[in-house]
């Protein structure tokens, strides 16, 4: 562990991890098939937008990456996904195979994968700082977390994470006192405090107004660019996906129907993904005509 974890004031992140899906199927307990034979490779440091109608399987896809949704068959690899195994051992951290990951090993993977939720998922009655420190729980001994006796290093890291999303002034406010946009940035800071190699975002702006949505998306984009963290973000809005993603993955009924550069996706591709013509509801800022 010590090789991949950094301590002290000069807190650094680890390099981004790659993600590989190989013939992944997800069948929910009720028999509904959430993902069908998904195969794709996300390179370390990529920023990927996943689009699709509601119910297409976007949440299912990202939630398999940290094991919140177990896969039924196939394999997901998180870590070194370059062909022919690790090129030079020094480069990357651990590599995980999701199909057989349970218990402590699964928690270790989760500690390397941050997640941002649509509804922020903050503990509302405690401070912003305590919420960000949740990202450090994996590295905190149980007795410390029970007493709330956080390490000074972890508090420093949490503060830095809050500074990065420019909300450090609110560190000691209660999460419930923040606006929606501020809460989502606290949630992003929480993932940053994990020093993650991957950040998953499940419709992070669906509960926000348009200007705030752009702030949050830019935060994610900068984190990806500055820190080299791999970012996979589910988006309902096509203009956001095209604007902030480098690559776009289109899902329909649990299948990948598009995978290519986000900039190349034109209206017909999107209509193909959605299986219908686009409407004003599909974009955040303007009618579909603006897409062209």
């Amino acid at each position: 562990m010590s090789g991949e974890q950094f301590e002290g004031a000069g807190l650094r992140t680890r390099t981004g991890a790659g993600i590989r899906f190989e013939h992944v199927n997800v069948t929910y307990p009720n028999g509904y098939q959430g993902l069908r034979d998904v195969s794709l490779t996300i390179e370390p440091g990529e920023m990927v937008a996943v689009v699709g109608l509601s119910g297409a399987g976007k949440s299912t896809l990202v939630r398999t990456i940290n094991g919140l949704v177990p896969i039924t068959s196939g394999e997901i690899t998180v870590g070194d996904v370059s062909d022919g195994g690790p090129a030079d051992g020094a480069a990357a951290g651990a590599t995980y195979r999701l199909s057989a990951l349970r218990g402590a090993a699964q928690r270790r993977l989760r500690s390397e994968v941050g997640m941002v939720f649509q509804s922020f998922n903050l503990a509302r009655r405690t401070t912003v700082l305590n919420n960000v420190l949740v990202g450090r729980l994996h590295h905190t001994p149980t007795w410390r977390s029970l007493l709330g006796a956080w390490r000074a290093d972890d508090v420093e890291l949490a503060m830095q994470a809050l500074e990065r999303v420019e909300i450090v002034q609110k560190a000691y406010s209660n999460a419930s006192e923040l606006s929606g946009g501020q809460q989502q940035r606290v949630a992003i800071a929480r993932t940053l405090a994990q020093q993650p190699r991957v950040i998953l975002a499940d419709e992070p702006v669906a509960s926000l107004d348009p200007p705030t949505s752009h702030v949050v998306m830019r935060d994610l984009q900068r984190i990806n660019a500055d820190l080299g963290i791999t970012v996979v973000v589910n988006l309902h809005f096509l203009d956001l996906a095209r604007r902030y993603g480098q690559r776009m993955i289109g899902l329909r009924a649990g299948e990948v129907v598009y995978d290519g550069p986000a900039a190349d996706a034109d209206e017909s591709t999107l209509e193909e993904i959605y299986g219908r013509s686009l409407t004003a509801e599909d974009v955040l800022d303007a009618p579909p005509a603006v897409l062209e």
């Binding site: 000069g10 807190l11 650094r12 992140t13 890291l157 503060m159 830095q160 994470a161 500074e163 990065r164 420019e166 450090v168 002034q169 609110k170 560190a171 000691y172 940053l192 020093q195 900068r222 500055d226 820190l227 080299g228």
Partner: peptide
């Protein structure tokens, strides 16, 4: 050590005042 990216954005390092812990 210095080449690795830090969590703090470059140039913005600690310019923001951190709030004092309430008593």
């Amino acid at each position: 050590m210095s080449a690795a990216p830090t969590l703090v954005a470059p140039g913005r390092a600690t310019t923001q005042d951190r709030p004092r812990k309430p008593a």
